[in-house]
Design a protein around this nucleic acid. Structure first.
Lengths: 203, 203
DNA sequence: TAGATTGTTAATCGATTAACAATC
DNA sequence: TAGATTGTTAATCGATTAACAATC
């Protein structure tokens, strides 16, 4: 269910930008392709944000969800591995929009040390432990090659990192019951699309 | 459930590389953090791939799953939008490993026309309709800005594209009931991690 | 044959949907 | 007040897990 919260956020922000002040669960459901029931059920897990006969105030609801998502917490992150995808994230992705403060990046390649990507400094990986000892970090963004994924994860756990945004395609959560992991696996997603093409359209 | 199939593939490939020939649902479940029951249930949807008292032959099962995922179909794809993420995909991501044949890319910026990224030619977007009329394409990889997402999707649908690998963060599926969409939304995923940090660790 | 392990049926669990009293 | 719409309880649906006969 949690994965629907960001979608609600996005839709509410859109409504707000279009000058809409209030929305009912029925309207929101229609826009998002869900039942009104599910929307009310989802929100009621966290509180009573609506009003009978009126619906929900768009900005109020958006702010409540932002709060639920911890966007005001100032969670901090570091980026591990400034390869193609790591660089694309640092250059292009707005961590601040998700309420995350990306502090710096680490890489093994000395040619990249000291470089500045969109305001993010690239440090040498040998500085990692010392850095984490001084600067507590909430989230590690893993963009290293598969071969480095597991050992780096263990090092980061040992340094106190508890949450991982994992682009490596390796199942780092296994055997580490107490960490939080969100996986972005391009190949899993694309393979699923291949499945749909073969099995849903030929039907 | 379909989203577990690529993970099975990956795990079986790993076992194969380690020289393992057979695996039971219990072993596989232990490795992947699932019940043996679920694994047997999943596979039995598609056929009888195991043998009582023995388990599953690793390579046979892997090949069966590859087949289910349509990896031998030679599905074709084009990439729309050669910005940061589009370039990272073209340069770095192995479409062939997912059984997808990436044919070429399209962009609006004339400076990019004719460029070759990892063997992928960048064409001008004005050539898109003509290209699709001559070359039927299964999958559109959408890496364009949010503002272009919806209109481009409609153009592509009109040109006969039925499957979308969607990196835009826009819900393109709404109102187009008959297309297949796999979304990769960085911000949705990162926001979910923010939620976990706030709500699961403080508990 | 005895042991192991499947495929499948039945039981359980959780998530979605429907219904409706409460109330703005 | 009448109409609209919430929050919540109950019903339904689907997915996961447990159990076990079949059989390699």
């Amino acid at each position: 269910m949690i994965h629907r919260l960001p979608k609600y956020m996005r839709q509410l922000e859109l409504l707000h930008q279009n000058g809409v002040n209030r929305v009912s669960s029925a309207e929101l459901g229609k826009r998002m392709g869900q039942t009104a029931s599910q929307i009310r059920q989802d929100f009621s897990c966290f509180g009573e944000f609506g009003q009978q006969g009126y619906g929900y105030n768009v900005t109020k609801l958006r702010d409540e969800i932002a709060n639920i998502l911890g966007m005001d917490r100032g969670h901090t992150a570091i980026l591990l591995g400034v390869g193609n995808i790591g660089r694309a994230l640092a250059e292009n992705f707005c961590f601040a929009n998700c309420g995350i403060d990306l502090k710096c990046a680490f890489d093994l390649n000395p040619e990249k040390f000291g470089k500045n990507i969109n305001g993010i400094e690239v440090k040498g990986q040998q500085e990692l432990e010392e850095y984490l000892a001084r600067n507590p970090i909430d989230i590690a963004v893993l963009c290293v090659p598969k071969t480095a994924a597991l050992s780096l994860t263990e090092l980061l756990i040992a340094c106190g990192v508890e949450a991982f945004w994992n682009f490596t395609g390796v199942d780092i959560a296994l055997g580490h019951g107490d960490i939080l992991v969100e996986n972005i696996s391009f190949s899993d997603s694309l393979m699923a699309l291949g499945y749909y093409l073969k099995n849903l359209l030929t039907a």
